[in-house]
């Protein structure tokens, strides 16, 4: 049984909307968690501004732990937590919880690597000027690494687009859900092709925007 793409179009639009919401909300929450954790990883490490070996090692282990669980398993494993946090374990809102747990630690690592690119000499110069650790974080580390952070967040966003497709598993909806439900399970190849093309398009747009924004951030 074939579906007419044009008749099906409203359903596709809704799926695009769901994908964008899932990715957008997860990205914002994950960044709010991941960026401070990334900063913490850099400043608490050996020789860092606020060196704290125990904290650094503990945080590192926790981040590695979450990063080692495959997303599809994380999705199911934390269903009780999801139910506790958003009141339900199905739907778009429910998909945000595992997506955040998946990409927050990932963003922490990405931000860490961006901040490590900041030349130690620049940090030392700020210290020599009498800047406090907070001033160095906000006025040296972040602005100097911003261009690289933006590029890395673009990578994280594209990762989220991919992961959000799997979130269809918990009824999260979105383009991935559509592709699986119609294209894969009901052999409607044209729906499959359209959704995949749309995902390709989203990824291209995200990457282009990321590149442009990153370039802008090189000179503030």
């Amino acid at each position: 049984m074939q579906v007419n793409i044009l008749e099906f179009w409203p359903r596709i639009l809704q799926a695009i909307n769901e994908t964008l919401i899932m990715v957008g909300v997860s990205l914002v929450v994950a960044a709010l968690i991941g960026i401070p954790l990334g900063i913490a990883l850099v400043v608490t490490r050996q020789g860092g501004l606020l060196q704290n070996n125990a904290f650094f090692k503990g945080l590192s282990v926790v981040i590695n732990f979450f990063r080692s669980i495959p997303f599809i398993i994380l999705l199911v494993a934390i269903l009780p937590l999801t139910r506790f946090l958003v009141g339900t374990s199905i739907g778009t809102a429910a998909a945000v919880v595992p997506l955040v747990l998946f990409s927050g630690p990932y963003i922490a690592r990405l931000v860490e690597s961006s901040l490590l690119e900041v030349k130690p000499g620049v940090v030392e110069a700020a210290e020599a000027m009498g800047a406090s650790p907070w001033q160095i974080i906000l006025r040296v580390y972040v602005p100097e690494a911003l261009s690289s952070i933006v590029l890395n967040l673009t990578i994280a966003t594209i990762g989220l687009v991919g992961a959000s497709a799997m979130a269809g598993f918990v009824g999260g909806g979105g383009l991935g859900d559509l592709a699986i439900a119609y294209g894969y399970q009901r052999f409607e190849t044209d729906i499959m092709i359209v959704t995949v093309l749309l995902l390709v398009l989203i990824v291209q747009i995200v990457q282009t925007l990321g590149n442009v924004l990153s370039k802008k951030m090189r000179r503030q």
């Binding site: 030349k119 000499g121 620049v122 030392e124 110069a125 040296v140 602005p143 100097e144 911003l146 261009s147 951030m217 090189r218 000179r219 503030q220």
Partner: peptide
């Protein structure tokens, strides 16, 4: 400093 250590983004 030898390598100036300026903020490249500013």
């Amino acid at each position: 400093f030898q390598h100036f250590n300026l903020l490249e983004s500013k």
